[in-house]
Nucleic acid binder design. Structure first.
Length: 214
DNA sequence: TATAGGATTTAC
DNA sequence: TAAATCCTATAG
């Protein structure tokens, strides 16, 4: 609920296509109460949309399983999983229940936060979860109350889209411009200068009118 | 039951 | 450029 960050985004806010949420989440603040009781937060500067079972990069493309169950549930909840046996990745479930879509949070600008072990960087999907102490214990958790919540923040001046990172196995879907970044941020997982350009040049990123800002 | 490989990060 | 590290998805 409300604290220094203001009220959390309501769960119904997320019941839209992942592509829209990925753009609108840029600038939003992720707030986490860690296992040590400390509150940590970061401003989201990079996201990726995973748009459904037909998206070959989306985990839901292989059907409904124990791991992907949360993606099939209602929007506004956390989908957290382990990759490479090492890294916890944090996603936001979007869309209507039964329609598995999610947005991966790939980078944050820390807001005066240090991780439980003194970490300071949030520029990577595995780094930000360590910094904010997010892991599978948050699986399925609603995103409108502690220990995990999202709050409106300062919207980016400019949004750029690129293909998603690390999904080369996904065939044609690997080239889709479903990664969204705050072009002004110096804390992206992969700098724009080293990101492949979006396949369709003039496809601009637009924030929807439902975007909250402060 | 066995095996391959992954929405990554770090170190050599 | 490769190792770390474990869980899931698929094959046998």
């Amino acid at each position: 609920m409300g604290d220094a960050f203001g009220p959390a985004l309501e769960r119904t806010w997320y019941a839209r296509p992942a592509e829209a949420i990925a753009a609108d989440l840029l600038g939003a603040v992720l707030r986490v109460t860690g296992r040590d009781g400390a509150v940590r937060a970061g401003r989201i500067v990079e996201t990726e949309a995973y748009v459904g079972p037909h998206d070959l990069a989306c985990h839901a493309a292989r059907g409904r399983t124990a791991r992907t169950e949360a993606m099939f549930g209602p929007a506004g909840h956390a989908y957290v999983y382990l990759v490479y046996g090492l890294h916890e990745l944090f996603n936001v479930v979007t869309g209507e229940a039964g329609d598995p879509q999610a947005v991966l949070i790939r980078a944050i600008e820390p807001l005066a936060s240090r991780g439980p072990l003194g970490e300071v960087r949030g520029d990577g999907p595995g780094r930000l979860t360590r910094l904010l102490d997010v892991d599978r214990r948050h699986y399925g958790h609603p995103l409108d109350r502690p220990p995990l919540s999202l709050h409106p923040g300062r919207a980016p001046a400019r949004i750029v889209r690129t293909p998603r990172i690390g999904v080369a196995y996904a065939g044609a879907w690997a080239a889709e411009p479903l990664r969204f970044v705050d072009a002004e941020s110096a804390q992206l997982s992969v700098p724009l200068s080293r990101s492949s350009p979006a396949g369709n040049s003039s496809r601009g990123a637009r924030r929807s009118s439902r975007t909250p800002s402060t």
